[in-house]
């Protein structure tokens, strides 16, 4: 925490103290919740529990990216495409060029970032439903292009047998190894998002989302910050896609349909879209849920839908809203 304060350019004014106090109460609750949960797969030591835990972390990373984009009041339906761009960039770099895994993730971030800047400059002037539609179209465009370029993307056959992740000559294809790696990657992602959102940049995001004309009048250039948020979020999705390719070992254009984006949105809304921990909570709740319901066949869709409606009806601020309330009660602030 102290290191974070040192790297933060904002002086420790009275304004900073309030969020810090707020964070302490919340972070204690989150630590009490997440640390035992994070250790759980290591204690149970079952391959399937590791698999689900890895998927939770992966979904949480990708959803965190969307959480940043939502901060500037834009809902992207192209998140699947950016995860796909990252996945293909990373997988192709490893397969065709023999690039090390970590470097392939940097390339995934770069590819997603460049695509996001280009798309962002084109569509971020659009508002509301028009932006949603434009990003939806981009997601479909990406999928179609991948289908039409079989020599690069493997076409409908996709890319299979993607080499397992290797860090410093150490293969982390084993589930415990990959889990530790992805848990650390998630922690790093959350830290980066936290740093962005607690910096003046994050406050500019909030200003744009809160009152755009006022933000403009205060000298905040909205386009620049919107592109920044869109790019940062999409870069996170790209890195998530790269990790996914290495873990699953198979990607195809069908892996990144607009349903991918829709599922990410659902996780964000259920978890809490204005909380840094919201994506983690959303992924934590909705990733294992289909496993519980899987053997119910056709019924599972209905049960899943009812669960979603119940969560949205009784927890409009998402699960993080509930935890925030609990933290307030614990700290005596009612």
């Amino acid at each position: 925490m102290s290191e974070l304060q040192q790297t933060n350019p904002v002086p420790a004014t009275a304004k900073w103290k309030i969020p810090q106090e707020f964070l302490t109460a919340k972070s204690a609750t989150y630590c009490a919740l997440f640390l035992p949960l994070a250790a759980l797969p290591l204690l149970i030591d079952s391959s399937f529990v590791y698999h689900i835990a890895i998927l939770v972390c992966l979904n949480a990373i990708i959803t965190s990216g969307l959480g940043v984009i939502v901060r500037v009041d834009q809902l992207s339906l192209a998140h699947g495409a950016f995860a796909g761009i990252g996945a293909y960039a990373s997988a192709l770099a490893v397969i065709k060029l023999g690039v090390p895994f970590l470097l392939s993730l940097v390339l995934a971030a770069l590819a997603a970032g460049v695509a996001a800047v280009l798309l962002g400059r084109l569509v971020l002037g659009l508002k509301g439903v028009y932006f949603v539609l434009a990003t939806f179209a981009f997601n479909e465009l990406f999928r179609m292009i991948m289908l039409l370029l079989p020599e690069i993307s493997g076409g409908t056959n996709g890319l299979s047998n993607i080499p397992a992740a290797e860090i410093a000559g150490l293969e982390i294809s084993s589930k415990p190894g990959f889990y530790i790696f992805i848990a650390l990657a998630l922690a790093a992602t959350l830290l980066v998002v936290w740093m962005i959102l607690r910096s003046p940049i994050g406050r500019a995001f909030d200003a744009i989302s809160g009152n755009l004309p006022l933000a403009q009048a205060s000298g905040i250039p909205p386009r620049r910050y919107q592109i920044l948020a869109f790019t940062s979020g999409s870069v996170i999705a790209g890195v998530g896609g790269g990790i996914m390719a290495a873990y699953v070992g198979f990607i195809s254009p069908e892996s990144f349909t607009f349903w991918f984006s829709v599922n990410t949105i659902i996780m964000l809304i259920v978890g809490g879209r204005y909380s840094i921990m919201g994506p983690v909570l959303g992924a934590l709740l909705l990733t294992p849920l289909p496993e519980v319901l899987r053997s119910t066949g056709q019924l599972q869709q209905i049960i899943y839908g009812v669960c979603l409606i119940a969560i949205l009806r009784f927890m409009p601020g998402g699960v993080s809203g509930l935890i925030d309330r609990f933290a307030e009660l614990m700290s005596g602030r009612k």
Binding site: S47, F48, L55, S255
Partner: peptide, 21 residues
């Protein structure tokens, strides 16, 4: 029997579950 929803990523999870659990 487990439902793979005709999806590649779900298939990975289902086969994983059948193999290890």
């Amino acid at each position: 029997a487990y439902d793979d929803k005709y999806s590649a990523s779900e298939e990975v999870t289902v086969v994983n579950r059948l193999l290890s659990v």
